[in-house]
């Protein structure tokens, strides 16, 4: 059950699932199906009102908000549909944010942020503010931010929803590459072409998982 303001409704009902380390999973479903709620719980942005969620063996559903923040910081990298970059900061300062909250020194942060941006092909755009970058470039900055802490899991919520096909391909290629390097990736989307790149597809409808199947052609590309 998920509470939103004074209206209560069940966004997820009896979801029972497991994602193994190193998997590339796509969660597919129409809007309102509960996939965002699932993503929020997986990302420790929210806790389930009932049931439990174990992340790497740790039960996070009973953790305090401060502990959850630390779990998010250490183990999860987020990529959002809206990019969610801070417009006043140059690219590298956006990328270093999670490191700042992890307590990494400034010199190290700058270096690691630069390396992460290089990895997404934006090594020459360190000082550009989000407004000076294209949508695809902004999303790559967001991917750099997600991977800069070397998290176990990368959670991507409709990462290509606001991108043209060229940029979509670039971002998805990045996710493929991260998966190839052993990251667990959970991708939320409503586009089947995007979902097909994953190794496993979870279909969710009305708060229930209606299908859980491996993708034969995907994952390994």
């Amino acid at each position: 059950m998920y509470r939103s303001g004074s209206i209560e409704f069940e966004a997820l009902r009896g979801v029972d699932m497991e994602i193994s380390a190193g998997e590339y999973v796509a969660v597919i479903g129409p809007s309102g199906s509960g996939k965002s709620t699932l993503m929020n719980i997986l990302g420790c942005l929210d806790v389930p009102t009932e049931g439990s969620y174990r992340l790497g063996g740790e039960d996070v559903s009973t953790m305090s908000e401060a502990s959850l923040a630390q779990v998010r910081n250490r183990r999860i990298g987020f990529v959002f549909q809206q990019f969610n970059l801070l417009p006043s900061l140059p690219a590298w300062r956006n990328v270093e944010l999670p490191l700042m909250y992890a307590g990494v020194t400034k010199a190290q942060r700058r270096e690691r942020a630069a390396r992460a941006l290089e990895r997404v092909g934006l090594g020459d755009r360190l000082e550009n503010r989000p407004g000076e970058l294209s949508g695809g470039q902004q999303q790559r900055v967001a991917v750099a931010r997600a991977l800069v802490t070397e998290p176990d899991i990368i959670l991507a919520d409709e990462p290509t929803g606001n991108l043209d096909s060229g940029s979509t391909e670039a971002v998805l290629a990045l996710l493929d590459e991260l998966h190839a390097h052993g990251r667990t990736i959970v991708l939320i989307t409503h586009e089947h072409e995007v979902a097909e790149r994953a190794g496993r597809n979870l279909t969710i409808r009305d708060g229930l998982i209606t299908a859980d199947e491996p993708v034969l052609a995907g994952g390994g590309r």
Binding site: A69, Y101, A102
Partner: peptide, 10 residues
């Protein structure tokens, strides 16, 4: 966003 990236309430 800052909270998602690991900023605690404090």
């Amino acid at each position: 966003l800052r909270k998602a990236l690991g900023a605690t309430p404090a």
